[in-house]
Amino acid sequence: MNWLLAPLAVLLGAALTTQVATNTELGKALGNSYIPATVNMASGLLVTMILTWALTSEWPSREMVREAPWYVWPAGGVLGATYLTGNILLAPKLGAGALVALIVAGQLIFSVLLDHFGWFGFAQHSAGIARLAGCCLMIAGVFLISRF
Rank of each mutant, 00 (worst) to 15 (best):
Ile103Met: 12
Pro74Ile: 01
Trp73Ala: 05
Gly121Gln: 11
Ile109Ser: 06
Val78Ser: 05
Ile109Trp: 04
Lys93Gln: 15
Val104Ser: 08
Arg66Cys: 01
Ile129Thr: 15
Ser126Asp: 11
Gly121Thr: 09
Val78Pro: 01
Ala123Lys: 14
Gly97Met: 11
Val78Ile: 15
Lys93Ala: 15
Pro92Cys: 11
Gln107Cys: 14
Leu89Asp: 00
Ala68Asp: 00
Leu102Asp: 04
Gly128Asn: 13
Trp70His: 06
Arg62Thr: 12
Ala96His: 12
Ser111Val: 06
Phe110Ser: 14
His125Trp: 12
Ile109Pro: 01
Ile129Gln: 12
Leu108Arg: 02
Leu99Lys: 09
Trp73Cys: 07
Leu90Cys: 10
Ser111Thr: 13
Pro92Arg: 09
Tyr83Val: 05
Leu84Glu: 00
Gln107Glu: 15
Ala81Asn: 01
Phe117His: 05
Pro74Ala: 02
Ser111His: 07
Arg66Trp: 04
Leu102Glu: 04
Val104His: 10
Gly76Met: 04
Ala101Asp: 10
Trp70Arg: 08
Leu84Asp: 00
Lys93Pro: 07
Phe120Ala: 12
Phe110Trp: 12
Gly128Trp: 09
Gly86Met: 04
Ala98Asp: 10
Gly86Gln: 05
Leu90Ser: 13
Ala91Val: 06
Ser111Tyr: 01
Thr82Ser: 10
Arg62Ala: 15
Asn87Cys: 08
Gly128Glu: 08
Trp73Glu: 05
Phe120Gln: 08
Tyr83Asp: 02
Gly76Ser: 00
Asp115Cys: 06
Ala123Ser: 13
Tyr83Pro: 00
Trp70Gly: 01
His116Cys: 04
Ala98Tyr: 09
Ala81Ser: 04
Phe110Ile: 08
Ala75Asp: 01
Ala91Trp: 02
Val112Tyr: 03
Leu94Ile: 08
Met64Tyr: 11
Ala81Thr: 02
Val65Gln: 13
Ala68Cys: 03
Glu63His: 14
Asp115Gln: 08
Leu84Phe: 04
